[in-house]
């Protein structure tokens, strides 16, 4: 991703360019539309005023098929509501993602889980996990694909300090490996992660 500019309120109603090669933090108190912003950037919603350009292409004009490709290979996301499939096991939830590009072997995936303390949860139904555990699974899932940008929407809200450290380490390590960048939206904390650019909503 080379270029991204939009003029909504605050970051909205302004123009900004998020350049690739940078990690971005967007600070956003509740109610300022951070989830909406990521929805626009991920092609989930189209109802914005102004323009959002991705590689100089208006995001509204990207077709459904192109979005599918972008989500498989260019942008990954950790959503605030996680969106796991509750009736499937952790294994199935992760495999659903990994099967798209087959980037990781089962051992690697289970490794990541145990780094976040979830090794015994492999065969457990996702709906029976705590919110914090679901968040961690959701984070692992987001790593199981190639990407240029990893977007995170309040990924650590239900995770304790130690696990936040472990998780953020994992995220940064995998992202660097892919030569990619992070765009995180947070209420106010940076979780000790390093960001080149900061914005406000």
């Amino acid at each position: 991703m080379r270029d991204e500019s939009f003029s909504p309120e605050s970051l909205w109603k302004r123009s900004a360019i998020l350049e690739s090669g940078n990690d971005h933090l967007i600070l956003a108190p509740s109610g300022t539309g951070k989830t909406s912003l990521l929805s626009f950037l991920f092609g989930m919603r189209n109802d914005y005023q102004g323009s959002i350009l991705m590689d100089n292409k208006e995001v509204k004009t990207i077709s459904i098929a192109e979005w599918a490709l972008i989500r498989r290979e260019r942008i990954s996301i950790v959503m605030q509501d996680m969106r796991l499939i509750p009736t499937l096991t952790v294994e199935d939830n992760l495999n659903l993602k990994n099967n798209l590009k087959k980037m990781y072997r089962e051992n690697d995936i289970r490794d990541m889980l145990s780094r976040l303390g979830l090794q015994e949860k492999w065969k457990q139904k996702a709906g029976t996990l705590s919110i914090g555990q679901q968040q961690r699974v959701s984070i692992v899932r987001s790593l199981l694909q190639p990407y240029e940008l990893l977007m995170l929407d309040e990924p650590f809200s239900h995770i304790d300090e130690e696990n936040i450290r472990l998780a953020s380490e994992l995220i940064v390590e995998q992202t660097r490996k892919k030569g990619a960048n992070i765009l995180m939206v947070s209420l106010g904390l940076d979780y000790n992660m390093k960001f080149n650019q900061q914005h406000r909503l």
């Binding site: 991920f42 599918a68 490709l69 989500r71 498989r72």
Partner: peptide, 15 residues
């Protein structure tokens, strides 16, 4: 619908 949306967000092609 929920599950399908999850799949589509993961990058599955709707066709």
């Amino acid at each position: 619908n929920y599950e399908l949306r999850v799949l589509l967000l993961m990058g599955y092609d709707h066709t």
